[in-house]
């Protein structure tokens, strides 16, 4: 039973990180109908900022702020430079553009920084653990759970109480009508990218604090997980993204924890089969978006 609870804590922590990642994709998709595969590179950028700040000997809290800001700025620039010119193009064009942005950035990292992964200096406290009752919980797990909760509360408040957030929700529901109500398309889309950059930045800090290094191809795996989680939850639905992220985290951890040893090798295919099974029952995801067809401007 203790083991089960311990693994559940692991699952919440991992699921939380996946939820943040999936939310980053969902925010942009809900408004633009674009799955931004360059989302992972925003994380890589935040990771490199953490690395450089560590080398410069900055306090870790300041490094986190800079890393998250860098990711936000990069996301807004990405929209302005790469996606705005093709905003009205077909979904396929947008998708290919996002792959191109991702590859261009990866090669730039390889050529301008290093092909080898670079160590990120982390405060010792992140490698430690605390004992609560009979549990041993890593400090970076607690950090992941706290960060997820804070971000989810912030998002909820932002989307419900803030003008920009309400505008985004309106745009996600029906962009044309939202524009008729006087909402500026450029502002809403740039805002969505900034928000996705913020989510990517926070997720990157959690991700990097686990692996202690950053490499040019680092963004691929998280964006893949985010994509699966977003589809599982219902593409374009923010609540769905959170649900999908947590469900994916639980599936992965429980399979790794409780599958018999001889089956462990097939953990990933079994996990994906479960995802497919969920989609067979709920083809639009766990919590589908109200307006599935995101309209472009």
């Amino acid at each position: 039973m203790d083991l089960f609870l311990q693994q559940t804590v692991n699952a919440i922590s991992l699921g939380g990180t996946y939820a943040l990642l999936a939310l980053g994709l969902a925010v942009v998709f809900s408004i633009m109908g674009l799955i931004n595969f360059a989302h992972g590179e925003l994380m890589t950028i935040a990771g490199y900022v953490l690395m450089f700040c560590g080398l410069a000997g900055m306090p870790f809290v300041l490094s986190i702020l800079l890393a998250v800001s860098a990711s936000v700025v990069a996301a807004v620039l990405m929209e302005r430079i790469a996606f705005r010119p093709v905003r009205n193009a077909s979904g396929a064009t947008l998708l290919v553009t996002s792959f191109a942005v991702s590859m261009v950035l990866q090669v730039l990292f390889q050529n301008l920084i290093s092909v080898r992964s670079q160590p990120v200096l982390l405060p010792q406290i992140l490698s430690e653990s605390v004992r609560i009752g009979g549990f041993v919980i890593g400090v970076n797990k607690i950090l992941a759970i706290v960060a997820t909760v804070v971000m989810l509360i912030f998002l909820d408040w932002f989307m419900k109480r803030q003008k920009a957030g309400i505008a985004m929700r309106a745009a996600a529901e029906d962009f044309a009508v939202a524009r008729l109500m006087g909402i500026r398309a450029n502002t809403v889309i740039a805002g969505a990218f900034a928000l996705s950059g913020l989510l990517a930045g926070v997720a990157a800090v959690l991700w990097v604090s686990q692996r202690a290094s950053v490499d040019p191809l680092m963004g691929f795996m998280p964006v893949l997980k985010a994509f699966i989680a977003a589809i599982l939850g219902g593409l374009g639905s923010l609540r769905g993204a959170v649900a999908g992220g947590f469900l994916l985290g639980f599936i992965e951890i429980y399979l790794a924890a409780f599958l018999p040893p001889e089956w462990q090798e097939f953990r990933d295919p079994i996990g994906l089969a479960l995802v497919v099974a969920v989609l067979l029952i709920r083809p639009n995801g766990l919590i589908p978006a109200p307006a599935l067809k995101a309209q472009k401007v």
Binding site: D2, L3, Q6, Q7, N10, S13, L14, V136, G138, K141, W207, Q210, R211, F220, M221, P222, E252, I253, Y254, A256, A257, P261, Q264, E265, R267, D268
Partner: peptide, 20 residues
């Protein structure tokens, strides 16, 4: 023994098993 996939980010389930 335990297996992992290359690029696996999270080892918490595996280390929890080893610790227990």
């Amino acid at each position: 023994q335990d297996t992992y996939s290359i690029g696996q980010q999270d080892f918490s389930a595996i280390v929890t098993r080893i610790a227990s």
